[in-house]
Design a protein around this nucleic acid. Structure first.
Length: 416
RNA sequence: GUGGACGUAGCUCAGCUGGUAGAGCACCCGGUUGUGGUCCGGGAUGUCGCGGGUUCGAGCCCCGUCGUUCACCCCA
């Protein structure tokens, strides 16, 4: 049975030449501000013990209850493809005792995540995220810095048509007080079965319902922000003060809901204007109980995850992705066998000095090869034939201007 | 998981009420012997997503399936 075509699994995003450079640009620039702020790389497995997510992210969440890729490995262990980044980072921090040293622990990560959802524009089953975590400090200044780093990442891409929404989920005491009243309020509403079930699992969810009638019904619902106790309120005000000082604009969204159970205190989301239904390009927040929940000491942390796929979509929608850049410094067109050998030698030497050099293999006609050089984005071209080999000199052509000059083969490095 | 739309050359799409496929872009070759981006000429390309069915005959109709897409849900 030969010849059957195999296509990619449903709902995965992949980037091939043509767009892969843009993807690379987005991924690298999104995370660059974190590196400037002293965050260090943490490279983790894409699969983990299933318990890590059921305990860390929370069994009541959609992410855990119906979107995980879970399977049994050959040793009978339950394994899950990571649906998010924070739980894995916490596991590794505890396991390697990183929290025994100087605090905060500051790490960044980058990689693929997996959720078995129905695919949609900007929503994939395998998606790419970069993120950071700062663990072990409760200073609201670090909350503001974390948010600022995410914001700087988006700005580094040239994005501007997005907004930052923030809120505070408060501490356990504040949330408990609010929950009592919220549940009471919800009990007065007439809900369909699915919605009632969601309310039962997490009453805050109803704030996120997009249906007009639900929004109207929830208009007068008690807001968590009004229930913050002294400590939580002061912290949230501090965060705002720092953001103001940084000149970062934000809107307070008291109805913001996050899908992962571990969030507490400062919580935020970046929403892009041009993206349609899947408009969240990044988000994060503080998590007080997570580390303890996973068997570590009781430290709070804060972090974010930014969606690389969606940020790329956003950048394309805004038209801020730089498209044509020179890919190679030099393109060599050899004419004849002896020239081909020399081309290999010259290219290899220049590459060892960090120059990007391509060779037109395959004995194409000169015109075709020139065209190829143009398409490939070559900055300079040289033709290597009998005459050049004999004289040791080539016509060095600058593609943008078409200007040529005589250059000794041995001196190519100087003119590149 | 639920509902709607769509699925024709590498890409974007056209194809009237069923009669055995087309355009633009891209690609390849050439425009007198070794120089690109413009122009001109020529050329290759599709089991019309896949599988059934109706019909003398289906890209066009029906069913199923897979995929994409939009919304809900959820979230990056």
């Amino acid at each position: 049975m030969a010849g059957q075509k195999i296509s990619a699994p449903k709902g995965v995003s992949e980037y091939v030449p043509g767009r892969s450079r843009a993807f690379e640009f987005v991924r690298d620039n999104l995370i660059s501000p974190a590196k400037l702020a002293g965050y260090q790389l943490i490279e983790l497995p894409v699969f983990e013990d299933t318990d890590l997510f059921t305990r860390g992210v929370g069994e009541s969440t959609d992410v855990v209850s119906k979107e995980m890729y879970t399977f049994e490995d050959r040793g009978g262990r339950s394994i899950t493809l990571r649906p998010e980044g924070t739980a894995g980072v916490m596991r590794a921090v505890i396991e390697h005792g990183l929290d025994r040293g100087q605090l905060p622990v500051k790490v960044w990560y980058s990689g693929q995540f997996f959720r078995a959802e129905r695919p949609q524009a900007g929503r994939y089953r395998q998606f790419y995220q970069v993120g950071i975590e700062a663990i072990g400090l409760e200073d609201p200044a670090i909350d503001a810095e974390v948010i600022a780093i995410a914001d700087a990442g988006f700005k580094a891409l040239g994005l501007s048509k997005y907004r930052l929404e923030i809120t505070s989920l408060g501490d356990a005491q504040s949330r408990a007080a609010h929950r009592t009243d919220l549940v009471k309020f919800i009990s007065t509403l007439k809900l369909d079965e699915a919605t009632a079930e969601r309310a039962r699992i997490n009453p805050l969810r109803l704030f996120d319902d997009k249906r007009e009638e639900m929004r109207a019904a929830m208009a007068d619902a008690p807001l968590l922000l009004d229930y913050l106790n002294e400590v939580s309120r002061t912290q949230f005000e501090q965060v705002q003060k720092y953001l103001d000082a940084l000149g970062i604009t934000y809107v307070i969204n008291p109805r913001m809901v996050r899908g992962l159970d571990y969030y507490t205190g400062t919580t935020f989301e970046f929403v892009h204007e041009l993206l349609g239904a899947q408009s969240g390009i990044g988000g994060g927040g503080r998590y007080d109980g997570l580390m303890e929940q996973l068997g570590g000491q009781s430290l709070s942390g804060i972090g974010f995850g930014l969606g690389v796929d969606r940020a790329l979509l956003a950048a394309e929608a805004e038209g801020v992705i730089a498209t044509s850049e020179f890919v190679s410094d030099l393109f060599i067109i050899p004419l004849g066998e002896p020239a081909k050998v020399q081309a290999l030698v010259i290219a290899s030497k220049l590459r060892s000095h960090g120059k990007t050099v391509e060779i037109a293999f395959g004995d194409r006609a000169l015109k075709g090869a020139m065209k190829g050089a143009d398409k490939a984005g070559a900055k300079h071209v040289i033709v290597l034939g009998e005459a050049e080999l004999a004289s040791g000199t080539v016509e060095f052509k600058e593609m943008e201007t078409g200007h040529t000059s005589s250059v000794k083969i041995d001196s190519l490095l100087e003119v590149l």
